[in-house]
Amino acid sequence: MDRGAGHALGMSLVTLVGEPWADYGLVDCGHGRKLERYGPYRFIRPEPQAMWAPADPDWQAHGEFVPGADEDGGGRWRFDKPVPRDGWKLGWEDVAFTAQCTPFRHLGFFPDMAPVWAWMRTQFTGKPDPAMMNLFGYTGVGSLAMAATGAQVTHVDASKKSVEAAKGNAKLAGLADKPVRWIVDDAAKFVAREGRRGRRYDGILLDPPKYGRGPEGEVWKLEEGLPGLIADCRKLLDADSRYLFLTVYAVRMSALAIGELVSQAFADLPGTVECGELATREEARGLLLPTAIFARWRRT
């Protein structure tokens, strides 16, 4: 669901709200934590932005991620009830994938991206043989959401383990025969090479981390690398392309800042630039929990 919230600096400010679905829901949140359901299992994870009181102070969960002393990482899972350590099957619309408790406090995919996947699916209406790129594609749920519609997908991630997990999700979803290129590479280097090769795409999704390393030890720092990456992505899109969607997590950065960055890069193309927040609707009271900021260019 899109909810317009006014205008600033010539851009629309928008909140993309993730609603509960059969296999996922934000059950309750508050006092710096959140309670979520992932299929038949419930988990508690840290959530600094949940500054209010929860609807119900007595949470029952299968496991909880207990953070370490370092706010930038660390911690461990504590389980009170049995949970399949090798993961379990979940689904979103017509895409199946594996959820699993990872050492990085999440469960192998990012459920607040569901409204982004749904929005991207609407952008290729009437477009024959669309081609899209998913940069920092992780375990591939976004790639498979597009491949299931018939789009040709280039999935890029620096982690071989993540790309193998994405291939496994493709098999689980019955989408292994879809036209997906699975690329293990440094995202910035790959995009730059695609530009030199004269490649073009109809849509690009990018979800860069705050910090990361490429397969050859390349260092990625968001604030330093993002402007150049957006400029190189722009070279792969033209007036017949449909969108670029950028999400940013876990940084002290404004949606307006990344909105202006995208607006400047796409000033020569027709279309609209919007920026704002991703949020998930809590089931207990319907309040919105912010999770990330985003900026997007769309042709229409």
Score class of each variant (00 low, 15 high):
81 K>A: 15
183 I>Q: 10
223 E>I: 09
20 P>I: 04
218 E>N: 02
98 T>G: 00
97 F>H: 11
42 R>A: 11
243 Y>C: 15
153 V>M: 06
225 G>P: 03
175 L>S: 01
41 Y>I: 02
8 A>P: 00
110 F>W: 07
47 E>F: 12
266 F>D: 07
170 A>G: 07
168 G>R: 02
149 T>V: 10
112 D>M: 03
159 S>H: 00
183 I>E: 15
185 D>W: 00
184 V>Q: 06
209 P>E: 04
209 P>D: 02
270 P>D: 13
158 A>T: 08
172 L>D: 04
5 A>T: 12
161 K>R: 13
83 V>E: 13
44 I>Y: 09
12 S>C: 02
133 M>V: 15
49 Q>T: 15
45 R>I: 09
83 V>H: 14
282 E>V: 08
288 L>V: 05
70 D>H: 10
192 A>F: 05
38 Y>W: 14
235 K>T: 15
172 L>G: 02
212 G>H: 10
104 F>Q: 06
144 L>K: 00
192 A>N: 06
170 A>F: 04
98 T>D: 01
211 Y>L: 12
180 V>D: 02
134 N>R: 06
171 K>D: 10
240 D>R: 15
125 T>Q: 14
3 R>W: 08
268 D>P: 02
18 G>D: 15
111 P>G: 10
178 K>C: 07
285 R>E: 12
227 P>T: 08
26 L>G: 01
242 R>M: 14
159 S>L: 00
65 F>L: 05
109 F>P: 01
82 P>D: 11
210 K>W: 08
76 R>N: 09
